[in-house]
């Protein structure tokens, strides 16, 4: 079964910039082109972004 993806625009919760997203998956991490914030795709319908929590970054451990 194919993993659901979505394409469209969402607003950066930090700087309100429009972020264009192409074939993104739930929980994928992207970067705002306006302010550089790390953003997580928290919903595909509607496309929604949230600031990616720092503590959940993969430190390679």
């Amino acid at each position: 079964m194919a993993i659901p993806t979505a394409t469209g625009q969402a607003q950066c919760p930090e700087c309100l910039a429009d972020v264009t997203l192409t074939n993104v998956m739930q929980n994928e991490i992207t970067q705002c082109p306006g302010c550089g914030a790390e953003l997580e795709i928290t919903s595909l319908e509607p496309l929604t972004l949230a600031l990616a929590p720092q503590e959940e970054e993969d430190w390679g451990e």
């Binding site: 930090e14 700087c15 309100l16 910039a17 970067q31 306006g34 302010c35 550089g36 790390e38």
Partner: peptide, 23 residues
């Protein structure tokens, strides 16, 4: 404040908003 800057300058060809977390 973000909203004010976005509204004023998003469509401006020569004004860029620079307030970045990285770079």
């Amino acid at each position: 404040v973000w909203k004010a800057y976005r509204e004023a300058y998003t469509q401006e060809p020569f004004v860029r908003i620079v307030k970045e977390r990285t770079g």
